[in-house]
Simulated assay, not measured.
Amino acid sequence: MRILLVEDDALLAKATARGLDHANFVVDIATTAEQAYHFLASYDYQFILLDLGLPDRNGLEVLKSLRRKRIK
């Protein structure tokens, strides 16, 4: 399963990704909403772990945007 981890705290992202990797997940890490959108345009993810406090956009705004795109 491929997971997108969107987290701007480098230590937290690394530790979370390491744990998911040990559980045999493939993890891509985005540190900004812009990077997350880039990853989402390039890959299909089964799960997104999304930080709400991103430096360039509120995580809830990102989630709303993703939901609008899925509905259409």
Rank of each mutant, 00 (worst) to 15 (best):
L4E: 09
L4A: 10
L5R: 01
L5A: 03
A10K: 14
A10C: 11
L11E: 13
L12Y: 01
L12K: 05
A13R: 11
A15V: 05
A15T: 09
A15E: 13
T16K: 04
T16F: 08
T16G: 06
T16C: 11
R18N: 07
G19V: 01
H22T: 05
H22A: 11
A23S: 14
N24P: 00
V26T: 14
V27D: 01
I29H: 13
A30I: 06
T31I: 07
T32Q: 07
T32Y: 01
T32P: 08
A33P: 00
E34F: 09
E34I: 10
E34V: 12
E34H: 12
E34D: 13
Q35F: 06
Q35V: 06
A36S: 13
Y37S: 01
F39W: 14
F39A: 14
L40W: 05
S42V: 11
D44I: 11
Y45S: 06
Y45A: 07
F47E: 02
L49F: 02
L50P: 01
L50F: 00
D51E: 09
P55D: 07
D56C: 08
N58C: 05
N58A: 06
L60D: 02
L60H: 11
E61F: 08
V62A: 01
L63V: 04
L63Q: 09
L66D: 03
R67D: 03
R67F: 00
R68N: 14
K69D: 12
R70G: 05
R70F: 06
I71G: 08
K72Y: 01
K72R: 05
